[in-house]
Write a protein that binds this DNA or RNA. Structure first.
Lengths: 213, 213
DNA sequence: TAGGTCATGAGAAATGTTTCACAAATCGTG
DNA sequence: CACGATTTGTGAAACATTTCTCATGACCTA
């Protein structure tokens, strides 16, 4: 059953399971075993069972997991029972792409506000809302009780924007800015930097990494 | 010195160090200790020292690391000594944003080709090159000897595109498609799915994750 | 209903990763 | 030069994660 503390590495795998279960559910697959699920995801079945066991008992011996039920349980664990409001800071191409994708999918998240510094972008419609000036960030975030934000501003503005967000009360931040940013305790910060991903991929093209297989 | 096999978790931290060192170098900082670097990155100094020690001895006792020299060594380890050619498949907003960013930075990577299925996009200039039809993918990738690719196509096209890329000889793929994809051995595949990041962030807003501090 | 097959959940073992602790090297200062 | 303050690289220890193994329960078929 539920332990005192779940490690982040386990929490990060839940969305992976969720994504696959949502797909299977849409396909009408009624049940799946940890073995099959693991095969699809390139993960050992025992790991899936152990991960899920931190949160409860969701499977049936001899059968596996009910796809639709397990999907609901994982959504519940992750707190995705109702749509979560997200603010996007930075209405450049990346901010637009992410916002529009969230709007299109209409799953789990709602774009509640988009901010930019550039006057030319203010008023543009992105992700289904009008772009607001960054000066109004705190006011709007507090008024709409937004708790989560996506940052797609240039590196040199990232720390300043993150400070603004934290000051406004945001507790979870996903940054795409290619720079290290610090946040106070109590705020969760993830950084997605695709150039870092490319750089580590590059290592495996050198031949140095070949021994890994 | 160099061990037989370096774990992926270590390789993935090198770009983090590199990003910080590049910044410090630009700022004119001559040397940095593992303690200072760790403080900036939220990592323990001992971890940085151990990571680097897999590849050689780069520091001086009592001094720390020469920023410029260490930066060069890490770039060398990652195989970033010359620009690496990258193909981008999917010329939507995300593909454009990523391509244009790489073109703008002109660091480590060159956009050598951009592909799309949509005839309306063919010929558009993205990332400094003209968008080519996906039918020409294999021909162009082989002609230009492209070894790395970024995939920004919708989920339902991702596996097909990845198959094409692998068939054309690409050995490292960074996919932004929100779906599980399989690749044969010998091809390294990373998946960046920002909705999965948001979902795991959501967990820490539930209060369930509060115990983590 | 009995026997065979399948698949979970959980404890134990194996493996991997992070952190500690310290000898050795470097510098600055008196 | 000698000493104190730093800081690396590394082996050992601590900690975390993954994998194995197996008792148990569920279904199916005859």
């Amino acid at each position: 059953m539920r332990k005192y503390k779940i490690s982040e590495i386990v929490v990060k795998r839940l969305p992976l399971y969720l994504r696959c279960l949502t797909y299977l559910d849409k396909m009408g697959v009624p049940t799946i075993s940890s073995h099959e699920l693991g095969h699809k995801l390139g993960i050992k079945p025992s790991q899936i069972r152990k991960d899920l066991a931190y949160f409860g008992e969701f499977g049936k011996q001899g059968i596996g997991y009910d796809v639709s039920y397990l999907r609901g349980e994982i959504r519940h664990i992750l707190g995705l029972t109702e749509h979560i409001k997200v603010a996007v800071v930075g209405a450049g191409k990346l901010g637009q792409a992410l916002s529009d994708y969230i709007l299109l999918k209409r799953e789990d998240f709602d774009i509640a506000a988009v901010f930019d510094r550039d006057p030319a972008k203010i008023g543009m419609e992105v992700g289904g809302v009008k772009v607001s000036p960054i000066e109004n960030l705190k006011e709007i975030i507090q008024e709409k009780e937004i708790q989560m934000a996506i940052v797609t501003v240039p590196a040199n503005a990232a720390q300043k924007v993150v400070n603004l967000l934290v000051d406004a009360g945001v507790r979870g931040i996903l940054s795409f800015a290619p720079i290290a940013v610090t946040v106070p305790e109590g705020v969760r910060f993830y950084n997605v930097d695709f150039t870092m991903e490319l750089q580590s991929l590059a290592y495996y093209l050198t031949g140095q990494g070949k021994n890994e297989y």
